[in-house]
């Protein structure tokens, strides 16, 4: 481990109990939301986390911010394991890790003015910035591109994009080192989305804040993150630098995800596509071996019995790890003929 590692998740697991029974609630099963992942976020770096709904990316984000306590595994923040830390032990860390949520409507209290929403974290943590909290609130509003005079207004007086900026200002109030952003732009219109992405990118660059950027939109993640991890059913199946992952994906799932993104280039419509059969299996009873095998066109017997480790494959660039027994050739994506269309269902 080097000192640059701000956050280090290792063997992180979160299972949620499924209870049954009429009077005595017994645990009958568990949802394997996150099932043993290793992920590091270095200082000032933006790590993207992509995957389909139910793959565990939001749970990972909540674990990283220690809003959830993991079932097992370690969460090391600046070298200290905080996986099972108490509220009191967590207090100093709380101000350093902040979250930005998806829905700018439900994540702001409608009865509080913008000023008191942004001042809240400073009051709770008893932070007295030089010049006073009100001055700091105005400064923050200015940083996120809102009119500082609007601190007295209520959230409903703002549009969706402006509300998301308020959420960003609140996250910045404590000068965090790491922001966990869970689908921060997916509720916004396209033209507004770009404004917020640019704002977040500016914060990463100018203030050196690290991001764990969770989104399902592969193009937005590519634009924002230096490294990207792909999750499937609670596991990281591939992780690499942005360029390696998008240009030379080795895991069939990454390849399929990328090929499913509709391209705005009208001439690109003829581009070869992989059509994945069926849906994601239930995380209550995930498939044995490789979890993707039930939808994978390359799956063989080994895939059902042996779980592929996440490792650097031959031909992978440094830091490019793939969990697959039968990976794609390390060619440039798109140059490759893909004629695979497993029948649906």
């Amino acid at each position: 481990m080097t000192d640059d590692n701000l956050l280090e998740l290792s063997g992180l697991t979160k299972h949620f109990p499924v209870t049954g029974g009429l009077i005595f609630k017994r645990q009958v099963a568990k949802v394997h939301a996150v099932d043993g992942i290793d992920l590091t976020v270095r200082a000032g770096e933006s790590v993207g986390l992509v995957g389909e709904s139910g793959c565990g990316k939001s749970t990972t984000g909540r674990l990283a911010a220690r809003l959830l306590e993991p079932t097992s595994g370690a969460i090391r923040y600046r070298g200290r394991d905080v996986a099972h830390a108490s509220r009191r032990e967590l207090k100093p860390i709380r101000s350093e890790i902040q979250m930005i949520f998806q829905d700018p409507y439900s994540s702001l209290n409608p009865r509080q003015t913008v000023g008191s929403i942004i001042r809240g974290p400073m009051e709770i943590n008893d932070i007295r910035p030089p010049g006073g909290r009100d001055a700091r609130v105005r400064e923050l509003l200015e940083i996120v591109g809102l009119n500082p005079e609007h601190y007295n207004r209520f959230p409903h007086e703002f549009s969706g994009g402006q509300r998301q900026r308020i959420g960003v200002a609140r996250a910045l109030a404590l000068e965090p080192r790491l922001i966990v952003a869970d689908e921060p732009v997916s509720a916004l219109d396209v033209s507004i989305q770009a404004q917020v992405v640019n704002l977040l990118q500016g914060l990463q660059r100018d203030l050196g804040i690290a991001f764990l950027f969770i989104a399902h939109d592969l193009a937005v993640v590519r634009h924002f993150s230096q490294r990207v991890a792909v999750m499937y059913l609670g596991k990281i199946v591939e992780i690499a630098d942005r360029e390696s992952l998008y240009e030379r994906p080795r895991h069939p799932y990454t390849h399929a995800l990328l090929s499913a993104v509709p391209d705005t280039d009208p001439d690109g419509a003829a581009r070869e596509r992989i059509r994945l059969a069926g849906d994601v299996p239930s995380p209550i009873d995930p498939p044995s071996g490789c979890r993707f095998r039930t939808r994978c066109w390359k799956a063989r017997d080994t895939c059902a019995t042996e779980e592929p480790p996440l490792r650097r494959l031959e031909g992978n660039a440094e830091g490019h790890l793939t969990a697959c027994h039968f990976p794609e050739a390390p060619a440039t994506a798109g140059d490759q003929e893909v004629v695979l269309d497993p029948a649906l269902g």
């Binding site: 396209v190 033209s191 989305q193 770009a194 193009a219 634009h223 391209d263 705005t264 280039d265």
Partner: peptide, 12 residues
């Protein structure tokens, strides 16, 4: 609309 949308192949 077109230039505010990040694309899989646009320059980063």
């Amino acid at each position: 609309l077109l230039s505010s949308m990040p694309k899989l192949r646009s320059p980063v």
